[in-house]
Structure formats: C-alpha cells, structure tokens
Design a protein around this nucleic acid. Structure first.
Length: 417
RNA sequence: GUGGCUAUAGCUCAGUUUGGUUAGAGCGCCAGGUUGUGGCCCUGGAGGCCGUGGGUUCAAGUCCCACUAGCCACCCCA
C-alpha cells in the first residue's frame, strides 16, 4: 500500500468539515460573549513544562507523550493538553501585569500516544478555556455555565455535568491520610495498580473500575467529609450559582481527575452515547499551578471540550450542504467562453457560481448541477447569446423564466444569493 | 501497553466453514432511453495486486505466520 497517515491521526474530509466549522464558530461566539480572548500557543513545548505541571506520575506524562530530542538536543514534547502552554505563555508574556481575571481560550490539536478507538485519536482537538487570577466560586460557575451554554447552542443532548471538589492543600492531605489508613488494612483485595496508587495517589483508587477495588471503595471515607470550611463553602457557592443559572448537574464524591494540578472544583461532562469514551469535556480549578511554574500566586480554573467527541454527538444539518446559487449550462464554444467570463463577474459580486469546463450534453450538465445542489441553472446556447435572453431554471420547483443576460447579477442578488 | 474481533469495488457488505473455471450484490459513478433540460423509472457500461509480506499446496479471496490499520474492552482521558 501507499503511504498511510500515522496511526491515530485522521484526515478531516470535506463532507465532515462544515460540522467542525460550526462547532468552532459557535464556540468562538459563545466564548466571546463571556469575554474570553483567543490565545494561540505553540504545539511544541519543553518536556519539562508538562512534567512539572501535569505530574510525573500521571499516565499522560509517564506513558502517553510524544517526546523527542530536537537537533540541538533539547527534549521537546507535543502538547498533550492546553493548560500548561497557556499558563507558560501567561507568565512569559507577563500578562499578569494587568489586573485579572484573565479569560483566555484556545482551539487546536493535542497529542497523546494511546491506543486509538472511536472518539480517541492520537491527534485530537480541544476547545479550551482558562480563567486566570480568579479565586471565587463565581469563576467556577461562570465557566461551567458557559460550557453548558455552548453544549446547548450546539444541540448536544444527553450530556451530564458531574461535579466534585478535590479539596485544597489544607484539607486534601488529611483526606489522603485517611484513605491510606483505610486501604492499608485492606490491601489484599486491591488490584496491582491500586496497591501502587496507594502510595502515589490514593484518590485514584476510588476511581478504579476493578470489581474488588470498587467493593472496598464502597466503605472508604468520602472527600466531602474532609473538606475544610472554606472548601466546603466554595463548593456550596458553585452549586448554588449553577442552580440559579438552571444548569443541571450531579455530584460524585469519587470523581477524580488525572492531572496532579487540580484543586477544589473538578468536573466532567459525561455522555452515555460514546461507549467507553464517555467524557466530552472536563476540567477543574488549579489554584497552585501558576505559582508552581514560577509565577505569582494565581488561582485559576479551566476546561477543555473534545471536538471529535462533540462531532460524534452532532447530527448533520441541511444548511451545511448548501450548493451553488447558480450553475451555468453552456452549449457550444462561444456560449462557454461567455459563461466563463460571466461566472467571474458573478463571483466578484460574491455569488457562488459553477459551470462545467467540458463540452458535455445539456443533460449531463443538468445532472451535474443537480448533484452540486445548485439552486438555479442558466441555460445558454448560441441563440440565447445572440438574443441576450436565456432561460433561468429554478431547480427546486422546475420552473423556468426568461432572463435578460445583463440582469443576472441583479436578479440573483434580489433572490438573496 | 494488554486481550479480543475485523480487513473483498468509491461506500455497505456476500463469498472464507468443506481451497478448484472469467470474485458477486445493493448504493454511488458514467452513458443511453429525449436535436437543448436534473431528480423518479428502464437499459447498458466502467470500476477489484480480495490490507501488505511471507509460507503450505498441483492450485489460496478461502488454510498458517508476521506486519500494518480499524473496531471493542482494559488502562486512561477530550
């Protein structure tokens, strides 16, 4: 076989492209109305950035990154998520010099070396939003309301917002210790992975899908019991604001997210429509990340939505299949020359015009016009050219009218083409 | 990274069990049925290194192995 695309990297073909444009355009519109500015950061970053922000122990960093040495010997990585790069750009360009909050969004490809399946690619695309320098619960709520609003605008149904709070540096260690104490006596029933997680990240044990682990987790302490006063208050406020905004949600005290930098609010938008790939989007608060990357203490929160997964949930719409406003069917050499010129003139007026370059029968040209979805066909032969009047056929109802050739532009503009 | 299923025309799939003439269908495509009129209908036509490479055999789309890719589950996540 000839050269194939790299595994897990897909071509976006013309029939699918309008859906993507719709998703991206709607997202930009919604993000814009919430005051988000676009930022575009490089796909390549120093490996260190991801190792330090996402966490060395996470699956992403430990086994999923596209990492390589460039020609100067620097270790570079193709971004597996957007937040780290955005935060890096925020610091490097000293965007914090202006008072916050800073609302930034970005749309683009991410890369993770995983085993591909439906809704999971090695190059995939995210709609990503971050609010930097915002500590209050209204920041969390605003972001979630915006995401819910976008899903609604897109017409994506059957998506549930699942919420949890992971606590802060104040209360999470207490909970971690409680968990470790609880599981310590029950290690025997845990899977191999979980026994390892117990030391590194005991919260993940709660998230394990193995039967034995699930059973043991049932009796485990819940993080909701360990929240410090301010974390509990923060979470209550977020929930209150969501309810006030009519955003429905569920809470799940076992929801844990894979990235180390999350604090307090963590969330996922889940669907039952995509099999094992049930997350359409996710995110959370990361109050410590900016400081950990060497910046000023800057509380922040963000989310990402997967474009491919959204596309899978969207039906095609008829308005995405628009055809040309006019097809010129020319019969004979002279009419074809005339049509070529007329087409350019109409196009200059912003009208989508097609014609066929080859000297084929009228029947073949009509078939082609029909296939392209042309709204009208102008039929021009030698007689019409001489008379300066040609039949214009409406392809929807089959009706034909005689139109003076010098009035085409006006006629089409009047028809809203 | 682990396990399972799959790969035949542009698309969806028969044919593989029990190896044996020119590998089929539907849809799509092209042309004709109308000296210059699309969609529906009828007729005809084009289009296939049967994923790639190796092996078994007189003979492989069919059996065996490897590779590649897709799908499903695990893992994890968008």
């Amino acid at each position: 076989m000839a050269i194939q695309a790299v595994r897990g990297m897909k071509d976006l073909l013309p029939p699918e492209a309008p859906k993507w444009r719709f998703i991206e355009a709607t997202a930009r519109e919604v993000f814009g109305s919430f005051g988000f500015s676009e930022i575009r950061t490089p796909i390549l970053e120093r490996t260190e950035l991801f190792a330090r922000s996402i966490g060395e122990e996470t699956d992403i960093v430990s086994k999923e990154m596209y990492t390589f040495e460039d020609r100067s010997g620097d270790s570079l990585t193709m971004r597996p998520e957007a937040t780290a790069g955005v935060v890096r750009a925020f610091l490097e360009n000293k965007l914090y010099a202006v008072p916050g909050p800073h609302k930034l969004c970005t749309i683009g490809p991410m890369f993770r070396h995983e085993r591909p399946q439906k809704g999971r690619l090695r190059q995939f695309h995210q709609l990503d939003c971050e609010i930097l320098d915002d500590a209050g619960p209204q920041g969390d709520a605003e972001l979630l309301v915006m995401a819910a609003h976008l899903l609604e605008r897109l017409g994506v149904r059957q998506v549930t917002l699942v919420l949890n709070s992971l606590g802060c540096p104040e209360c999470r260690p207490v909970f971690k210790q409680q968990l470790q104490d609880y599981f310590a006596g029950r290690q025997g029933g845990l899977c191999e992975d979980c026994r390892r997680r117990l030391a590194t990240n005991p919260l993940r044990v709660l998230d394990c899908k193995q039967e034995g682990c699930k059973e043991i987790s049932l009796g485990a302490p819940l993080i909701s019991g360990s929240w410090c006063e301010s974390c509990g208050e923060h979470f209550d406020q977020v929930k209150r604001l969501l309810t006030q905004s009519s955003v429905t949600f569920e809470t799940d005290p076992k929801l844990v997210r894979g990235l180390d930098y999350y604090t307090r609010t963590a969330f996922e938008f889940k669907t039952t429509q995509l099999g094992a790939q049930d997350a359409v989007g996710g995110g959370g608060r990361y109050d410590g990340l900016v400081e950990a990357l060497g910046g000023p203490a800057t509380p922040a929160i963000g989310f990402a939505l997967g474009v491919e997964r959204l596309a899978l949930l969207l039906e095609d719409r008829p308005e995405w299949q628009q055809g040309p406003s006019l097809f010129i069917a020319a019969l004979g050499d002279e009419p074809r020359d005339w049509a070529f010129g007329a087409a350019q003139e109409l196009r200059r007026a912003g009208i989508w015009v097609e014609m066929s370059a080859a000297a084929t029968s009228l029947k073949a040209q009509m078939r082609r016009a029909n296939k392209l979805g042309a709204s009208r066909v102008l039929i021009v032969g030698g007689e019409e050219l001489k008379a300066g009047i040609a039949p214009l056929k409406d392809m929807a109802n089959g009706e034909q009218e005689d139109l003076p050739l010098d009035q085409i532009v006006d006629r089409l503009k009047a028809a809203g083409a």
